[in-house]
Design a protein around this nucleic acid. Structure first.
Lengths: 336, 336
DNA sequence: CTGAAAGCGCTTACAG
DNA sequence: CTGAAAGCGCTTACAG
């Protein structure tokens, strides 16, 4: 069943059916009613491929997710669901595309095949081949995260540096003198992962400014590493009384190690950082932390992308979010 | 840039370029080489919409995720990523589609708009309107989960009943006499959610058979509910020495409640059930549990769907997986 | 081994 | 307010 069939049954031309559907040309009330009756009766809906070909747009976005090797963190997953939700409000579909590893074919299919109207790129690196590729292909895109000098790019990010600065100030206010930042994995940092680099910068700067001893440790994105990392800190730096973390995936291991150590939080040790709300609340005790607003970021990313698609030559826009630090139960005065 | 441009530059007809690309008709080596040179040089790739329209297939699958109200569990999320991976090996793209709530538009767009070649439906209910809709539209689909009498349907599922039976036998062997099944939410059970119903049936049957006192409690899919649920069990049924759970989302709350209670697992209480491997391993102590093989299920679902798309009239197939129970550290002899 | 042409199902100037 | 026709960029019988 196609538009011709509808036209025939409604006794009008195909163009009239098309215009009745799109509203791009006035159609007499009587005709419109007749057309709509036939459409409802037959449950007709335009073929998406034909429409995309004729219109030159697919009404589809691509969400490029990080390489599957790295498991998605809770924040990232919430983000995926939220992007789908936000896109749905624009009647846009979302193509989930893997990248990295042996997924170049998938990414190229999206980019060159004109498969989508725009792309949202998660977890970009400071130097990112995919960004260059999208620019070259002149495909509208928005990144989650931003590079050092963003230039004319469109992005949404959380201000990791500012948030970590706040966390360290908070710990300094509580009298802590020896603090550690639990960062992301070595490889990620080496690859130039912005949030980790900026968190480190903010951490070290405020530590110095407030006269604290601050150390940064990289930790692989998995519970086991979190546990090992904690044990190493206890062994090598027993003077440390507070942890700042941006590593969500390691949290369960941290919890386990904490449990085994018999340490009480926050009496013996304070913990804070940038953590998804759900994870912070599920920790025992609930973590004082900056909640990454994944839903808001998703919403903003889709809004920006829709705007950029509508006007590819518009001046670039971005949003740098600075969520509040929620005081829960994991930070307290330095033990003496 | 389109196929005509390539044809012109290579000095051949458009059909020859098309055949060189698809391999559906022999092309002389010299011509093929010339065509490929031009294609590589210009980075040409066929327009996906045009191809879809001409071929009558989109090379795209839809993965319908559960209503966003219910947060995705860890297993479900791993499943999404794995489906994308598996589809990529067939050079298929995946459209992520929300369903339920106010997402009927999204679902209808997929179904009627011929947007995809096939659909994978997660989390089906025993009576599921989406299943009926897909059948009516004659769109190939595979469900994760199966209904009571599956008839000629295509599906992949985990044998919850068999797994829970094994768990209860294991507890009975360890001497436990009073056990509780922590099921999913009231609403889900009321809606006819297969895994919960089948787990309950298996649980009660083996409990009776082995002479145990078995109770089933429903628990909302969130940590807070898990905590409340545990506390209620301790209060109302202090004689209970073992828990069987199929509720992953409630696990963090269970962990917290356990911590507060001061109970030692497995000395004072045994815990087992059907749980994603990652969650089971991250629990403290690691849970003896049947690991839901999300990756394998995803792979199988895609394989079956590809098969069904290729031959819509083929006899239906399905896969009922029965993963092993991994012995970890959360079950032990009944305390006396 | 290759080409000219029809057709997939839409949208949208062009005409009236 | 409406229709006839061209065109989007492919694939694939039909011919040679």
């Amino acid at each position: 069943m196609n538009i011709g069939e509808i036209a025939k049954r409604a006794g009008v031309s195909r163009s009239t059916v098309s215009y009745a559907l799109s509203g791009k040309r006035p159609v007499s009330t009587a005709t419109a009613r007749r057309i709509n009756e036939v459409i409802d009766q037959l449950g007709y809906r335009p073929n998406a491929s034909a429409r995309a070909l004729a219109e030159g747009r697919t009404r589809t976005l691509s969400l490029v997710i990080p390489p599957a090797g790295r498991r998605l963190t809770d924040v990232q997953l919430g983000f995926v669901a939220s992007v789908v939700e936000a896109a749905a409000t624009y009647d846009l579909d979302v193509l989930l595309s893997p990248s990295g590893g042996d997924h170049d074919r998938s990414f190229e299919r999206i980019v060159t095949g004109r498969r989508v109207d725009g792309v949202i790129l998660m977890e970009i690196l400071l130097e990112d081949a995919r960004v260059a590729r999208l620019e070259q292909a002149a495909l509208p895109f928005v990144t989650i995260g931003h590079v050092e000098r963003p230039g004319a790019s469109w992005w949404v990010d959380v201000d990791y540096e500012a948030l970590i600065r706040r966390c360290v100030h908070h710990l300094a206010d509580l009298g802590h003198e020896h603090v550690v930042l639990v960062s992301r994995s070595d490889e990620l940092v080496a690859a130039g992962y912005g949030p980790a680099l900026r968190a480190t910068a903010g951490f070290l700067d405020v530590a110095e400014q407030r006269g604290l001893t601050g150390h940064v440790v990289c930790c692989a994105d998995e519970p086991g590493a979190g546990q090992a990392c904690f044990e190493e800190i206890r062994r090598n730096r027993p003077e440390v009384t507070a942890l700042v973390t941006i590593n969500e995936a390691a949290l369960p291991g941290l919890q386990r190690a904490l449990h085994h150590s018999g340490l009480h939080v926050p009496r013996d040790l304070s913990i804070t950082g940038v953590i998804a709300k759900r994870l912070a609340e599920d920790f025992s005790p609930p973590l004082t932390a900056a909640d990454v607003p994944a839903e808001e970021m998703a919403r903003l990313a889709v809004d920006l992308l829709v705007e950029r698609i509508a006007d590819p030559d518009a001046t670039s826009r971005h949003a740098l979010l600075e969520p509040v630090v929620s005081l829960r139960s994991s930070t307290g005065a330095r033990p003496r």
